[in-house]
Write a protein that binds this DNA or RNA. Structure first.
Length: 566
RNA sequence: AGACCUAUGGUGUAAUUGGUAACACAGCAGAUUUUGGUUCUGUCGUUCUAGGUUCGAGUCCUAGUAGGUCUACCA
């Protein structure tokens, strides 16, 4: 009964971010009858990345929280860079992240006829004019932040002439770039975006949806807000860099007398050791530094999916990162925490040896095989048990043996006892070494027959527990170990250095021949496992029937490694 | 230089709107553990500066400082 009180209390105390505060105030004031409708407006000219994930989460979750809806709208007003292929990938990525837009899939290009009429309306009101100036001239007359711009000589054309010219632009009578339609606002405005911004340009490019139907295309500022308005979006959330566009956004809505969507800007999420610049990401792909847009090291949603990051962890991450208006750099350790936290609860435990060292149990009968029962997830009993074959010759991790270990080393060394997870306690009798290289080639042990896991009557306490596989039964697999792509938390923030200077040459390490326990043979691409004591690993789509390929999603926390680094 | 935005522990975000600065991650120390995982406990450390209003300021006012953004026929 106290629980209920606590719940209510915590709900009362729930803190709101600044957007939620705005929305709740709007609801209190009965604005739009309390309706909340958002949109996610990607341009189909690239792949979605971690920054988009934040925007997607904000838009979908905020609307959902207040009983509203979210539209997916492709902002496809520039035919030169946009392609259908991107549309499909973007849709797949959003679905994967866990969001659904039902049938509300819209395209700014669907509104071209309406937008054209809007333009006519502004011309009729004397608020837009056709300018014959070149791009260079327009830029030159724009002024600078400290000096006002100059008015174009074409600014005072008559409404009739503008109407005629604009219609002929649309009809294809002028070559590309010959004319533009501009809003007539204020060439002396402090806000550069108000200095007669361009609304339409002539551009004969094949559009991925409208084909060659149009040779004039609206600019972002004359498409985005109007699209919001057409869809009756109540809260149009975007990143900070659009803050200077807001007066223009509001100006068009006011002059057009259309639905008053409201633009709200928030700071985009930056994550340490990651970059999100399309151009820079593309360069990584083009130069072959990564295998593609879905390389597991990429900050793209497709890359992170392949890496094995669960979508739920990404959502939690975006949520924990918070929403505000100041520049931020979220530590990647928070992302890793969210990934581990979810995978700890959901991933089945298995054993794999990445860097094998042979162990021979001298008092274990040759040819004997025991099926050892091992739990699949200590965090979740319902995931049950599996069996692992145990035999005289095993592989353990090379790091788990030291010829002359220090006190605090809890693993195997001459004369020491150590537990094999789910099996027996071993006593190390000795080892063999290649005299030429000094490499340990084999460890010789005896086992305590009465120390069997779950039925241990030996009374022996082993400090360490190791993972292992039976040499004769293990399967081979390829394992790809990933590390951060860059060696600097903000590789693109240095004025004197290129971000590629910080490319981490060790960001991928391939282990061609690792040994995995036989139960893994049936693993399917997308499957995610905890390799005991090593980390979380996802089955890569490169896997074949003959050979599984695993991607290391993230390591386990490793306090031993931390101690060693000190 | 002009306009706009922002300023709270190492990082990020809160603070019931003027009333004891908190939560998470990271760090450190310890307990538990058949994963040096998980879990648990403890600990470190915060309101940009200077004035002002007020019984009382992270919150309001003024000035400064610092960082960011803006001058594409991109979005």
């Amino acid at each position: 009964m106290n629980e209920l009180n606590n719940k209510e209390e915590s709900k009362e105390r729930e803190s709101l971010n600044f957007i939620e505060q705005i929305i709740e105030e709007d609801i209190r004031n009965g604005k739009h009858s309390g309706r909340v409708h958002t949109r996610f407006p990607p341009e189909p000219n690239g792949y979605l990345h971690i920054g988009h994930a934040k925007a997607i989460c904000i838009n979908f979750q905020l609307a959902s929280k207040y009983g509203g809806l979210t539209n997916l709208r492709f902002d496809d007003t520039n035919p030169t860079t946009e392609e259908t292929e991107y549309v499909e990938n973007i849709k797949r990525d959003i679905r994967w992240l866990g969001f659904d837009w039902d049938d509300r899939e819209y395209y700014a290009s669907d509104y071209f006829p309406e937008l054209y009429e809007f333009a006519i309306k502004l011309i009729r009101k004397g608020l837009a004019y056709v300018d014959d100036s070149s791009a260079e001239e327009i830029a030159e007359m724009k002024g600078t932040p400290t000096e006002p711009g100059r008015e174009s000589p074409f600014r005072s054309r008559s409404i009739e002439e503008n109407l005629d010219l604009f219609q002929r632009m649309r009809a294809g009578e002028f070559p590309d770039g010959a004319k533009v339609l501009r809003a007539r606002i204020d060439m002396a405005a402090d806000n550069m975006h108000l200095r007669d911004p361009i609304m339409y340009r002539i551009k004969r490019d094949h559009h991925h949806r409208t084909g060659d139907e149009w040779c004039i295309y609206p600019m972002y500022d004359f498409a985005h807000g109007q699209s919001d308005s057409i869809e009756e979006i109540t809260h149009s959330l975007c990143s900070l860099e659009f803050i200077h566009h807001r007066p223009l956004y509001d100006w068009f809505i006011e002059k057009l007398e259309i639905f008053p969507s409201r633009q709200i800007e928030f700071a985009r999420m930056n994550v340490s050791y990651m970059i999100t610049s399309k151009r820079r990401l593309l360069k990584l792909v083009r130069e072959g530094r990564v295998s593609g847009w879905d390389d597991p090291r990429m900050p793209t949603l497709s890359g992170m999916r392949r890496r094995g990051f669960p979508p739920g962890a990404l959502r939690t991450f975006c949520d924990k990162a918070g929403t505000a208006k100041r520049e931020n750099l979220i530590e990647i350790s928070l992302l890793e925490f969210c990934v581990r936290d979810e995978l700890n609860r959901t991933a089945a435990r298995v054993m794999a040896v990445l860097n094998p060292l042979k162990v021979v149990i001298t008092n274990y009968p040759e040819g004997k095989v025991e099926d050892m029962e091992v739990e699949n997830n200590p965090e979740d009993e319902s995931m049950g048990n599996r069996t692992m074959p145990f035999s005289r010759e095993l592989y353990i991790e090379r790091d788990d043996f030291m010829e002359d270990p220090p006190r605090k080393y809890f693993r195997m060394g001459p004369g020491r006892d150590v537990r094999l997870k789910g099996a027996y306690i071993l006593h190390c009798e000795g080892f063999e070494k290649d005299p030429a290289t000094g490499e340990i080639t084999e460890v010789r042990c005896t086992y305590y027959p009465e120390s069997k896991s779950g039925a241990d009557t030996s009374g022996i306490k082993a400090k360490g527990t190791l993972h292992w596989v039976s040499a004769a039964h293990a399967k081979e697999a390829e394992v790809r170990l990933y590390d951060r792509l860059f060696t600097d938390p903000q590789p693109d923030s240095h004025e004197d250095k290129d971000y590629l200077d910080f490319f981490n040459p060790d960001s991928l390490q391939v282990i061609e021949k690792a040994y995995i326990e036989p139960s893994l043979a049936s693993a399917q691409p997308g499957g995610c496992f905890q390799f005991l004591r090593l980390g979380y690993f996802a089955v890569d789509p490169d896997s074949t029937d003959k050979k599984l390929v695993f991607n290391r999603t993230v390591t386990l926390k490793d306090t031993w490694a931390k101690m060693q680094n000190k």
